[in-house]
């Protein structure tokens, strides 16, 4: 007759089983024990240094192999949303030699590099299918020319530097601003420039005075001094006066609107002479 093993659990085993069935042991049974077992196996295996090194070597080789597959390798770059000059400068700054493995492209670093360019507002880089690196760029649009002491630069609508130009003549379509701190008030300049449409053919530029208010400079040495606040309204009044009564056609050197309650006109030399003679 076959003798059977005693199916009864030992007292210790019985107690252990009951301990494991406690509700508080449930998370341990589900996560703790597998994790401990796995960690033990891995650490036992990794005790030997040679094994560790061979594993690292194997992994890096695998990485290279996968990166150089024809399906994955990056062959070209496309720049979207940038003018040809900007695209050229982006290519120059990135200076990637194609073909390149996608593992060797650090998109975050490259994006930073592209965004470091002045003319780029925002950039995003993607590796798309068929090995194309796409650089999508929001280019900054210059809206004003800022002449400072040593250079002439283009500013975008937030007052950020876009590019340096040799002289104001290279962008005659944009308004000229000058003075320290002019770049910080570009939105206001744009509004003033818009309001000044009727006198735009006489407009020379805007000067920021004391980093707080604007002077509008016209040809023939005329200028309009605007207040710190509500400059747009003040300029609007001046323009209306000019349209209605040809204010600026007369011999007036300065229209001083700094105090809008009490505007002052400074006459030109001829007008003063005429006044005295009369």
């Amino acid at each position: 007759m076959r003798t059977m093993k005693d199916p009864a659990p030992s007292r210790l085993e019985y107690r252990m089983k009951r301990l494991m069935l406690r509700p508080s042991m449930r998370p341990f049974r589900r996560f703790g024990m597998p994790v401990i077992a796995l960690a033990t196996l891995v650490s036992l295996w990794a005790v030997d240094e040679g094994r560790r090194e061979s594993a690292v070597a194997f992994l890096s080789e695998l990485r290279n192999e996968v990166g150089e597959r024809p399906e994955l390798i990056v062959r070209m770059m496309i720049v979207e949303g940038a003018s040809p000059e900007l695209a050229a400068s982006i290519r120059k700054s990135l200076s990637i030699e194609f073909p390149v493995s996608p593992f060797n492209l650090r998109l975050a670093d490259l994006t930073e590099k592209v965004q470091a360019l002045d003319a780029v507002a925002h950039a995003s880089l993607q590796v798309r299918s068929r090995g194309v690196l796409v650089v999508e760029v929001d280019e900054r649009v210059p809206v004003a020319v800022w002449r400072s002491d040593d250079s002439v630069v283009l500013l975008d609508k937030t007052g950020y530097r876009v590019a340096t130009v040799p002289s104001r003549v290279s962008r005659p379509d944009l308004p000229l601003v000058a003075g320290l701190g002019a770049d910080a008030a570009i939105p206001e300049v744009l509004q003033l420039y818009y309001v000044a449409r009727p006198i735009r053919d006489r407009l020379r530029g805007f000067i920021r005075v004391g980093e707080r208010r604007w002077d509008v400079v016209l040809d023939r040495g005329q200028s309009i001094k605007l207040p710190e606040t509500q400059a747009v309204t003040a300029l609007k009044k001046v323009v209306e006066l000019d349209v209605a009564q040809d204010l600026l056609e007369r011999d007036i050197s300065v229209v001083d609107f700094r105090n809008s309650q009490r505007p002052v006109l400074r006459l030109g030399q001829t007008a003063i002479g005429t006044l005295h003679d009369g």
């Binding site: 005693d6 199916p7 009864a8 659990p9 007292r11 019985y14 089983k17 009951r18 069935l21 406690r22």
Partner: peptide
């Protein structure tokens, strides 16, 4: 006692509950 332990442990295992 051993027989009771066998039965209780098997039932506990089926119930997954102490």
């Amino acid at each position: 006692e051993r027989a009771i332990r066998t039965a209780v442990q098997a039932a506990q295992k089926m119930a997954q509950c102490r």
